[in-house]
Design a protein around this nucleic acid. Sequence first.
DNA 1: ATCTCATATGAAAACGTTACAATAAAATAG
DNA 2: CTATTTTATTGTAACGTTTTCATATGAGAT
Lengths: 339, 339
Amino acid sequence: MVTIKDVAKETGVSPSTVSRVIADNPRISPDTKQKVREAMERLGYHTNIHARNLVAKSTKAIGAIMPSSANKALQNPFFPEVLRGIGSVIHERQYSLTLSSGETEQEILEEVQRMVYGSYVDGLILLYSRVEDPVVAFLEERDFPYVMIGKPFARLEEITHVDNDNFMAGKQITNHLIARGHEKIAFIGGSKDLFVTRDRESGYLAALTDADLPHDEDYVIHTEFLKSGGKEAVEQLLSLPIRPTGIVVTDDLMSLGVLSTLEESGVQVPHDISLVSFNNAYLSEITKPALTTVDINIHELGAQSARALIERTIDNKIPPKRIIVPYTIIYRGSVKEQK
Amino acid sequence: MVTIKDVAKETGVSPSTVSRVIADNPRISPDTKQKVREAMERLGYHTNIHARNLVAKSTKAIGAIMPSSANKALQNPFFPEVLRGIGSVIHERQYSLTLSSGETEQEILEEVQRMVYGSYVDGLILLYSRVEDPVVAFLEERDFPYVMIGKPFARLEEITHVDNDNFMAGKQITNHLIARGHEKIAFIGGSKDLFVTRDRESGYLAALTDADLPHDEDYVIHTEFLKSGGKEAVEQLLSLPIRPTGIVVTDDLMSLGVLSTLEESGVQVPHDISLVSFNNAYLSEITKPALTTVDINIHELGAQSARALIERTIDNKIPPKRIIVPYTIIYRGSVKEQK
DNA sequence: ATCTCATATGAAAACGTTACAATAAAATAG
DNA sequence: CTATTTTATTGTAACGTTTTCATATGAGAT
């Protein structure tokens, strides 16, 4: 292993000078810098981060905390995509990325504690958001830098987070249905405990109100993620005396389930019922009628959170902020004019 | 930050003794161990990995290298799942997991070099396999511990890798179709450059041969991952003078595309054409006819590779090995008896 | 009682880096 | 041409561990 001393010896300067060259300190003459850099290149020098971290406090590493795998959400293509987003800025800034590996909530907490106490990372990105999260409590108590993707459950103004404007997205996509002549519009969302669901639902309701459409409670369904839930939801809607002509579904994967159940029941999409969805996962363009869906820009959610976190690791005193990533509506084939 | 010295002072022993207690050195008396452990607990001591790594050579961290994002495969739910698998053993052994963040091949190589030279990790897991991979060349040259998920392109016997028996799986799933009376069976696979495709195809062909069925070259199609490719493949098959009655598709996501194209063309699955698939991604149970598919046990692929790697980081001289993870066929509704 | 040997502990060096204080050399001012 | 400031460089002390070597204590063996 070639160290700073080897480079120093090679160039005939002191180790401290080499260290300064690495840090690009202005106090070093251009000549020396040049010379040292050549030697580093020639000998194949690479900084040993452990030595560096021991003295300088920064690790130049951040951690990403995944939700516990009890949560089926993991199957969602969301994760590889956020990780890519995070990765892109991580790479650009020459940071490195550590992933949490716990499966249960308890394990995740332990993992986080190990990362924080052992000074593995400078900051953390929480890839989920839940009620009364002990991880958040711990980080707050230690005043450790972190940002959250999605909307925090409490202390909204005190936690830096990156989110979409889910209210507006929900409103706008519902408006799309309304503009196409739909008046009986249902909503199928995930758990009510999740802010994504709540915000999108509020948007949906607002659109209805703005258009002077009544909102029927039977038209709003919350279901456990997918599969059985999605099936039940659809069956419930179809058994109603007056069937909806349009449905807003809060997740593409969910839409897939809705779509298949609808077809099983002989209901044609978009002929009989129009469907709009969220996320623009890859699969949303390969379903039978391709889905009209809200592209929430997952990659950007990741990238922005990484940027915000790095900023925060440099100065944890900057005021917390909320970053809203713009969404785009992707129009495809799941919506039809309703006469 | 509470250090080993603080614990030493608190208990009235020397730092070296504390260090030995941490390492559970048998030379320390049970009494002392007890006492020191209590103090560690009380003061909230946590090992600083950077200090430890500086002297002991192990980082107790491994890296996972994702494929370049040029590769659409990233959208595949495969990744969160392998990462979970890796994570489970990582956690169990108290290791930590670093993720590569490069987007292009060049970036990935740089990333790997940084990880290796900077001694960020003890070993690497390659989550992909490609021809003439500079990353592999680099790792081989440095004799750095690594394992690969999938099948290496060269030096099969020299690289520790974790894979399924894709030949047998391909054969068995094809046999399932044959047993149900199908004789005209087509195959839709990904790029011919990928070993997964090749192996599954060989299995498919072997099944045909064993059953004395002819194999028609027109029935074998290689397509770029999905979407347009999947569509074309299906159209090609349907335009044949004699249509197949069964299709083997090498990936669930691909099957989704095949399924929708088939339906668009008015072909009913499984009534007109039966479909079998691979991977058992979550979506395979929510498609219209749920897919009969090969569960390749992605989680286990990850877990096994992590285990093999950790073993290898401890002793890089152990002979390379190949680990075959068993698959299971999940029978669902996409296959029908052919009379 | 002396000697050997195991057992339990401690002192100190090392790991590769950064950062502060010190110094030497060069440039500028009076 | 000395005094002062500026610029470029160096020596040294940390950072928190592990590890080798040394040492003290007590138990058996002679």
